[in-house]
Amino acid sequence: MVLILYNFNQVGKKVRLSRILKSDGKAVVFAFDHGVEHGPKDFPPEHIDPNKILEKVVGTGVDAVMLLPGMAALTHNVWANKTSLIIKITSKTNLRPEDQRFLQSVFGYVEDAIALGADAIAATVYWGSQYEDAMLSLWFSIREVAERYGLPCLQLAYPRGPAIKNMYDVEIVKYGVRAAVESGADLIKTYYTGSKETFAEVVKVASGIPILMSGGPSRENPMDFLRDVKNVMEAGAQGVVVGRNVFQHKNPSGMVKAIMAIVHEGMEPEDAIKFVG
């Protein structure tokens, strides 16, 4: 007789991850936390109302959206039962003194994410910051509760701080990813290092933990961004988390469709650009 022991929280984590990382193990996540981190100036006038941009993005079939708790509650009629929800429960404003901008603060709790119906939790750690210890303490308190309820944890593993000269340097990014792995991240969002070859090194350091590229600032030429997406996918990444390169573009729906085609279908950027127009 074989005795099967069920570890309920691990089953829950596996189920929830499968809602984000689709059957091919890949995901396109729309990040929409910029209203706090950058302020309303980040949004074109037509997208000041968050419902309008989310309606366009969710309508494309994007795999997941990443929101802060308040925004998730405000827009639930748009995303509910249409895409996966990742709740980010740390953030910071640029209104605080400059020397404190390398610190993330509490913006919600794991219980808030559960109440909202989230499939995962997200939190940022600025590796190399003078506040690294405070963010690590917050990260571990988040992970402890999330683990209890079977919620995967996405770590935004960002090397930032006074001592970081180039946060896109491959050795710096690899260091941050290794630290994210060792701190128990289930998914890792990190910076693009500028080439397929160097990003392959980042993926290798992740040791099987899914890597998602951070979209970063909007590119003047969308083709440049689509080529970055293609490069990270060929390097072995599981997808991208993109915000400004979508909501600051004149055709956000088209950009999401193009990114989805590259991530899930392996389409070439020169072909995917047709969605953008």
Rank of each mutant, 00 (worst) to 15 (best):
V106K: 14
G61R: 05
Q130L: 15
M135G: 03
I172P: 08
M71G: 04
E220H: 08
L85W: 04
Y175K: 10
G59A: 05
E234R: 05
V203A: 03
P269K: 13
P217A: 02
N221D: 15
M223V: 12
G184C: 12
D224R: 08
Q238W: 02
M1K: 09
S129C: 06
E270N: 01
P40N: 09
A123G: 14
R96I: 13
E147K: 13
A123H: 06
S214D: 14
V276F: 00
G39S: 07
S214K: 04
D24W: 02
I89W: 05
D119L: 02
K13P: 13
L154K: 00
V78N: 08
M71E: 06
Q104E: 15
S195H: 05
P159N: 08
P159R: 09
A118W: 05
T83L: 09
N231C: 00
W79N: 12
P69N: 12
L151M: 15
A237N: 12
Q10P: 06
V205S: 03
N7Q: 11
V36H: 08
M1Y: 05
P69K: 12
V173R: 00
D228L: 05
A80K: 15
R178C: 08
A272M: 07
P40Y: 11
F102I: 02
R143V: 07
T124K: 03
K230A: 13
Y168S: 11
W127M: 06
L103H: 14
E220F: 11
K174M: 15
Q130D: 07
G176H: 09
L3R: 14
G239F: 01
V36C: 01
V110K: 07
I89M: 04
A180R: 12
Y109T: 04
H47I: 01
L212Y: 10
N7Y: 13
T83R: 14
F225K: 13
M1V: 06
L138E: 04
I259Q: 09
T198K: 05
E220N: 12
R143A: 10
M233R: 11
F275N: 15
E132S: 14
S214I: 05
M167D: 14
G59T: 08
V229S: 01
N9R: 10
D99N: 12
F32Y: 14
V11P: 07
V29Q: 05
L54V: 11
A134Y: 13
I87H: 05
G194R: 00
A157F: 06
N245R: 08
T190C: 15
D271T: 00
P44C: 07
Y158H: 09
G215H: 02
L67S: 03
S183M: 06
V145G: 00
R143D: 06
D42F: 00
H76M: 10
V181M: 09
G25V: 10
N51P: 04
D99G: 03
K196M: 14
D228A: 07
V58A: 07
L17M: 14
V58K: 09
S141R: 15
P210G: 11
R143M: 08
L212W: 12
C153A: 10
